[in-house]
């Protein structure tokens, strides 16, 4: 039994004949919190789709807890890997029914209704994520933040060791962003859940993750602790953007300050005037 939760070996994949990811190679330790960062179109979501078996892998291999993804059935895979997507799109479905869908990987062909155990697991996770009180409401009556909490409850109900989250905070305000990420971090600490997160906000990535993987144009550009990855040079090269990096006064983690074009121009002209004097 390997202690890797996920091992991606020299993997290439894409849509049609074009590779969107080439020679991606990394491992995720059991119980770690890793964030994948990179500009739009760098291949973050493609990577997720490949890991979760939605996209066929052209070259290389993906191992989930030591087992090759290619040999796993849909159900076996869904018992190892749970995914929270950017948005939920569950429509007019009761929250309870939605969360119970997390039990689908454990269904036998002839089980028509959920078992008592299914209900218990779903209840536990709805209480944990704080959507229990609203379980009889319809999904589309919830706010975006609550929908994501329900999606996490559904993912937890799958009882996997690995949780993939694809920009779960993209459409949320700062309080809901923190609420969702605090919950995920708590699950990571307390339940020893391995977390792999795609996130655009570099500061949140820095604050919450043990490890960062930075993608650029379908390959891994940098990989390591937030301090190692979030440097001025890396960000300048990958995002083509000028930023100031400092550390968060409380956590000591890197903190990125974006600098607007106007500020930058004023700054440069000030410096030139100063040097002229």
């Amino acid at each position: 039994m390997s202690h890797f939760a996920l091992k991606v070996q020299n993997m290439s994949c894409g849509y049609g004949s074009k590779f969107h990811l080439s020679n991606v190679d990394f491992t995720i330790d059991q119980g770690s919190f890793t964030s994948i960062i990179g500009p739009n179109g760098a291949g973050k979501t493609t990577l997720f789709r490949a890991i979760s078996g939605m996209l066929s892998i052209e070259n290389g291999d993906v191992f989930l807890e030591g087992e090759n993804l290619k040999t796993l059935s849909h159900k076996a895979r869904a018992r190892k890997i749970a995914i929270v997507n950017q948005s939920v799109e569950a429509g007019a479905m009761r929250i309870e029914d939605y969360v119970l869908m997390g039990r689908l990987p454990y269904r036998t062909p002839f089980s028509f209704f959920e078992t008592k155990e299914d209900y218990e697991i779903a209840e536990e996770n709805m209480r944990l994520t704080g959507v229990w009180e609203k379980r009889h409401k319809l999904m589309d009556q919830l706010s975006g933040g609550e929908q994501q909490l329900a999606a996490i409850a559904r993912a937890l109900t799958q009882k996997t060791n690995l949780l993939l989250l694809d920009e779960p905070t993209a459409h949320l305000d700062i309080s809901h962003q923190m609420k969702v990420l605090n919950l995920v971090r708590r699950l990571n600490h307390e339940a020893k859940l391995t977390v792999l997160l795609i996130i655009h906000d570099l500061n949140l990535a820095s604050e919450y993750s043990d490890q960062l993987i930075m993608l650029k144009e379908g390959t891994i550009f940098a990989q390591g602790t937030p301090e190692e990855v979030l440097t001025y040079n890396n960000i300048e090269e990958v995002y083509n953007t000028v930023v100031i990096t400092r550390s968060n006064p409380m956590s000591g983690k890197p903190f990125i300050f974006p600098v607007s074009e106007v500020t930058l121009r004023e700054d440069i002209s000030k410096k030139t005037t100063q040097s002229a004097i």
């Binding site: 939605m54 799109e89 479905m93 869908m101 689908l104 990987p105 028509f112």
Partner: peptide, 24 residues
Amino acid sequence: SLFYAPVLNAMRLGLERATQLGVN
């Protein structure tokens, strides 16, 4: 078709998401 009802239930989320839930 009743055997496929849970599958159709999952497909309310879309094909890809149903697949993520282990449904073929």
